[in-house]
Design a protein around this nucleic acid. Structure first.
Length: 498
DNA sequence: AAAAAAC
């Protein structure tokens, strides 16, 4: 008897009248519902596959490759998380899916396992599974996870590094020795639009859209059209699609209900809520200058690295970087204006602990799993509750605890209430006077999002300090870090002892 | 609207 059957099975009691098949079925359904409620698994749809309670059930019921089973154990995953309990069987029953589960609750494994089980073994047919991510950093991380999970099975998992190289590698003349592709949208579209197309998605059987609400963003510069092009290129009648995110968007749900085949919707816990493992705090800092003072105060009081600091724009990221470089802490910066190589180096150095404080834009807000980030600092107020949830979700992952501090000024009042609500719902204290703020109408919120705050510049350090830094080689003439060590310039961030 | 996303 499997563990789930032990949990879900109907106990036979002596002297009880012989249960009819219907009664058994009803009791079983009740047990399943109870289990789902216990795990805060909320599910909608018809013919719903039962959740699993242990990974062993993948061996007993779904014939998982023993190597993958071993890799799951070796990676230290003892029990499936709620999203894994439900999403894995849903996908293994070939059912299309809309999934919403908190940050850091194991969504990557929840779609990676069923993809690998579904594909059974490597084949030389070309790509049979495709995962789309909004940033290269997230694609790279997902790629790495899949490689780790499939070690010893021979599956070939690819990322597109240079589109030109990829065209040769994956084109019609290639030997088709690949199984799974993880990519950001535009690189893939570039390959699709070659004449003849440099990649063939006609054999894709699983298409996973990670951070689906981000990739469904509409408008002239949104991802949505790119996603549509990719959907259309997956022409196999066998193709199934799954959408994953930590936040729930109604337009995604609507789209799924209209376009997916008998879609199942799975949500874990309350939708659009922050991870309960994050200790959240709002801090009034008065003004822009107040932010810098409060930041310096945090540094001085001694804080626990690694720390992620979020700002609103690339420009502000640069400004803040130039302020903090003088603090004697290992600080670095990442945003989309940096080169691919710089981005990779920074992520690598932050992962390895060489960088203590990483200043970033929304680039790192979603999906990125840095082990043990102790604090997220929202230096600039997030532009929506959704962005807030993703940002602070970089800490408090996989059951660990984390801390998030969010600076706010008078200017941030309009969105304060909606973010305070998220904090309150997560059980963290919110000052009374904020609770009494009037709620912004959704119309006004949209306006806020469309026209974000124009903030004062971050105070610039006195000139003499900059000249001093230049002499010491901390920053170059242009005020940008020197990149003389091509591959690893992390050590340049350390301000020499005085 | 910002940020992200190809060569």
């Amino acid at each position: 008897m499997s563990a789930l059957e032990a949990k879900l099975g109907v106990p036979k009691k002596k002297g009880e009248e012989k249960p009819t098949a219907e009664k058994l079925e009803r009791a079983r359904r009740e047990k399943v519902n109870h289990f789902r409620n216990q795990q805060k698994i909320y599910i909608e749809g018809t013919d719903l596959p039962e959740p699993i309670a242990t990974f062993e059930q993948l061996r007993d019921q779904y014939k998982i490759h023993p190597k993958i089973m071993q890799n799951i154990e070796a990676a230290g995953f003892q029990y499936p998380t709620p999203i894994q309990m439900q999403a894995i069987p849903v996908m293994l029953h070939d059912r299309e899916l809309l999934a919403c589960a908190p940050t850091g609750s194991g969504k990557t494994l929840a779609f990676s396992v069923p993809i690998l089980v579904h594909l059974k073994q490597p084949m030389n047919k070309g790509f049979r599974a495709l995962i789309i991510s909004p940033t290269r950093e997230l694609a790279s991380q997902t790629h790495r996870e899949l490689v780790k999970l499939s070690e010893g099975t021979g599956f070939r998992i690819h990322m597109i590094h240079k589109a030109a190289e990829a065209a040769k590698k994956f084109g019609p003349k290639s030997s088709r020795k690949f199984d799974i592709l993880v990519t950001t949208p535009n690189r893939l579209i570039y390959l699709l639009k070659q004449d003849p197309p440099a990649i063939d998605l006609a054999r894709i059987e699983w298409l996973v859209v990670d951070e689906s609400d981000k990739l469904f963003e509409d408008g002239k510069t949104g991802f949505r059209d790119q996603l549509a092009t990719i959907f259309l290129a997956c022409t196999s009648p066998l193709v199934k699609r799954a959408m994953f995110s930590a936040t729930f968007a109604h337009d995604v749900e609507q789209w799924c209900k209209l376009n997916l085949d008998n879609v199942i919707s799975v949500s874990i816990g309350a939708r659009n809520s922050a991870a309960e493992t994050v200790d959240q705090e709002l801090l009034f800092v008065g003004s822009e200058t107040g932010k810098l003072l409060a930041m310096r105060d945090l540094v001085k009081k001694g804080f626990m690295p690694p720390v992620l600091v979020f700002v609103q724009s690339i420009e502000r990221a640069k400004e803040l970087f130039h302020e903090l470089i003088y603090e004697g802490i290992n600080v670095d910066i990442i945003h989309a204006d940096r080169t691919q190589q710089q981005r990779e180096n920074v992520v690598q150095s932050f992962r390895s602990g060489k960088i203590w404080v990483l200043i970033c834009t929304a680039l790192l807000a979603r999906g990125i799993d840095f082990k043990g980030v102790n604090m997220v600092l929202n230096y600039d107020f997030p532009s929506s509750a959704v962005e807030y949830i993703h940002r602070i979700g970089r800490t408090g992952r996989a059951g660990r605890t984390g801390r998030a501090i969010t600076f706010f000024t008078e200017d941030d009042k309009p969105l304060l209430r909606s973010i305070a609500s998220v904090i309150q719902r997560a059980g963290c204290p919110v000052p009374d006077y904020i609770k009494h703020f009037h709620k912004l109408q959704s119309k006004q919120k949209k306006k806020m999002i469309k026209k974000p705050l124009e903030r004062e510049h971050i105070l610039t350090s006195p000139r003499f300090l900059q000249r001093k830094a230049k002499r010491k080689g901390i920053i170059s003439q242009k005020g940008v870090k020197k990149g003389k060590a091509k591959n690893n310039n992390a050590h340049l961030q350390t301000v020499p002892e005085k």
